[in-house]
Structures are given as structure tokens and as C-alpha cells.
């Protein structure tokens, strides 16, 4: 396979053709933060936290899907990249509860994001759905990374229990007419719980034990 040499943060990197910037960076120990990205799933490239500066490109580019090109010059820590990352994390923190997403909190600390900056506006708040014997859904913690929707659909299970409700700031994960999980096509495979990056999806027993101990 052909190999490609490019520059990431002033380091020369050589990777097979077709590698993404994110993976190429990882080969030289550069970790680019990302929320929606999961190595086993189709990257939707929607969190935009992994966007990096590529010389010659107008906007910032999502490292999770952008394939490397020969002589590409990438900067993953420039002021512009850090500003984008910080503002997106501040926006997210103003919208959902990130209390059980330590890695996102860690990203925030790295760029000195102020979680209160956009506070006071519309938040996504929901009651916890406790509608089946296996897992709970706490969409107040949902960051809309789409992973659960994807594993439930073509990426893994082909069950199609989940979809998107509404749009814009009010986007949320939904079922057909918001019916309870046992009434949907859900087969309780647990894949969605496995890929959830926050505390939004959680085993029922784990959730009950946590509640008892708190």
C-alpha cells in the first residue's frame, strides 16, 4: 500500500494512504480530542471537537474523517483550533449535564473552558426513562453523538429502535412516537449502552446501586 508523508504539529509522519488525520496523529503520540468518534462506528463527524487546522483549507477540518494527503501541514493545537474546541465544549456544557463524562471534563480543563460561559439559556432536560429491566436512559446527559442511533441501525444491530426527535437545540434521541423501549423493536442487545460516552445510557442495576449509595 502506498504511504503518505505529512506534517502534524511540526512532526513528520508517514502513514498508509487513506489514514485519517486523527489516526495519523495517534501514531506519533498526538491525541486529538473527540466526542462522537468511535473507532468501530461510521464517524458522523458532528461534535467538531476534533477539528484541526490544515494549511490551505478555509475552515477547520474534522480529523476523524479527513484523510491525509501528501505534504499536508496540520496543526492540532493552534490558537484557532483551541478556540474552536473551547467554545464548542463551553456550548456543550451549557446544554447538558456532563457530570458523568470525565473525559469531556478533562478536555475542558485542557483548553481552560468556562462551563458557565453560556449558562442560563435553553438546556436539554428530561426525566430519566426507566421503562425496561435492563437499562435506563437519562437524556439530560446525552451529548447527541449519535452512537446509540448508529449501533442500533446499520452500524451493528439493524434493529432500528432509535431515531432523532425534533431538530436544532431541541434534538434528542427518540423512539417511534416516544414509546417505551419494550414496545419498540429494541432487542436489548446492550450495544447502545456500551458505546454511550456519558452517563446517558446505563445498566439498570448499576443505576439503582448508584442511587442507593448516594
Amino acid at each position: 500500500m502506498a504511504h503518505i508523508t505529512l506534517t502534524i504539529d511540526n512532526q513528520s509522519v508517514t502513514v498508509p494512504e487513506g489514514t485519517t488525520i486523527l489516526d495519523a496523529a495517534a501514531t506519533v503520540g498526538i491525541t486529538i480530542p473527540a466526542i462522537c468518534y468511535h473507532p468501530s462506528l461510521t464517524p458522523p463527524a458532528i461534535c467538531r471537537v476534533c477539528t484541526v487546522e490544515v494549511e490551505g483549507q478555509r475552515g477547520l477540518q474534522p480529523a476523524c474523517v479527513m484523510p491525509v494527503k501528501a505534504d499536508m501541514v496540520v496543526n492540532t493545537t493552534s490558537q484557532r483550533v483551541q478556540t474552536g474546541r473551547r467554545v464548542i465544549l463551553e456550548l456543550l456544557a451549557s446544554t447538558v449535564d456532563l457530570g458523568e463524562a470525565p473525559h469531556i471534563q478533562h478536555y475542558m480543563a485542557d483548553v481552560q473552558a468556562n462551563p458557565q460561559r453560556f449558562a442560563g439559556g435553553v438546556k436539554r432536560e428530561f426525566d430519566v426513562f426507566e421503562d425496561n429491566p435492563f437499562y435506563i436512559r437519562d437524556y439530560s446527559q446525552c451529548v447527541m453523538c449519535w452512537r446509540c442511533i448508529q449501533v442500533c441501525a446499520e452500524d451493528v444491530q439493524h434493529t432500528f429502535a432509535l431515531t432523532w426527535g425534533e431538530r436544532g437545540i431541541h434534538s434528542h434521541v427518540a423512539t417511534f412516537f416516544d414509546e417505551d423501549m419494550p414496545d419498540t423493536t429494541c432487542v436489548f442487545c446492550g450495544n447502545c449502552v456500551g458505546v454511550c460516552p456519558t452517563g446517558a445510557l446505563k445498566g439498570l442495576v448499576e443505576w439503582q446501586l448508584e442511587r442507593e449509595s448516594s
Binding site: P44, A45, I46, C47, R48, V49, G84, V87, I88, L91, L92, S94, T95, F118, G120, G121, V122, M144, W164, E166, R167, G168, I169, H170, S171
Partner: peptide, 21 residues
């Protein structure tokens, strides 16, 4: 813009709402 954002990517999904606020 807040009303018409599709909600796919975070900066627009949340940013348009905060801008309006």
C-alpha cells in the same frame, strides 16, 4: 438560525441558540 439549525453539528446546534439568546 436557531429555529432552522438541523442540529447535526454541535457548533450550529447549540451556537445558533446561544447567539439568539
Amino acid at each position: 438560525f436557531a429555529h432552522e439549525s438541523c442540529g447535526k453539528c454541535y457548533p450550529c446546534q447549540i451556537g445558533t441558540q446561544r447567539q439568539a439568546e
